[in-house]
Write a protein that binds this DNA or RNA. Structure first.
Lengths: 107, 107
DNA sequence: TACTATGCATCGTAATACGATGTATAGGGA
DNA sequence: TCCCTATACATCGTATTACGATGCATAGTA
């Protein structure tokens, strides 16, 4: 997948993945990978800074968890995050409709 | 519209707009504006560098034109540009399907 | 006269995705 | 035992990008 394709939509995807239930970074990446049929495969350099941005923006909170000797940072949506997700979702639909209106002629 | 939303999809939109028929920069922006119901309103700082990138990549060619005392640079798709458009269109559909698969649960 | 629309262009900035790299644990295969 | 892979976190530096600001020029309109 083109590197630039994701830009501007990553936040939506992460929020949506977390909305499905609290999860740590690795699990979030796996959810996105599975639900996209393998299209999305977030590298660490993309995933973790993005999660930190979400937390900094108070859209998610995190807590440390210890599972089988491995530490995990588990993320959860805040009410603000849920609102942001709704907003992003609407924006996405509007954007996708607009793109379709332009390239739809080709189909 | 969020500034980042467009990222990575601008090339597709421009190619699609030009595919509808040769056009100069201003006209291309108007087509996108109209076909998106006003959502896309490309500023010059976005439009012209992007067109230059397309030409540099040999996806479009340009020729100068003089209309009513105003000079215009008219862009046209190359065969390579047409192929790129097809490719981008496929990529877009794949991407949009994947996003829908992830956020679709919210609807 | 001044403003708006048309039409081109470039520079600098901020944001972003990501490759590379590093650390650490657990488990399986050679 | 040794090594590789998967899991799990993190940061740094780079390239790319969209875009605001700015500038130039013409035509029409208020």
């Amino acid at each position: 997948m083109n590197a630039e394709t994701l830009k501007g939509h990553l936040e939506l995807l992460l929020l949506a993945a977390i909305q499905a239930g609290p999860a740590h970074g690795y699990a979030i990446a796996e959810r996105l990978h599975a639900k996209s049929n393998g299209l999305f495969d977030l590298p660490e350099g993309t995933l973790y800074p993005a999660l930190h941005r979400l937390e900094h923006a108070a859209l998610v909170t995190s807590r440390w968890s210890q599972v089988a000797g491995r530490r995990r940072r588990v993320y959860q949506l805040t009410p603000k995050g849920r609102r942001a997700l709704t907003q992003h979702h609407g924006d996405w639909q509007e954007f996708a409709r607009a793109v379709h209106g332009i390239v739809g002629d080709l189909a």
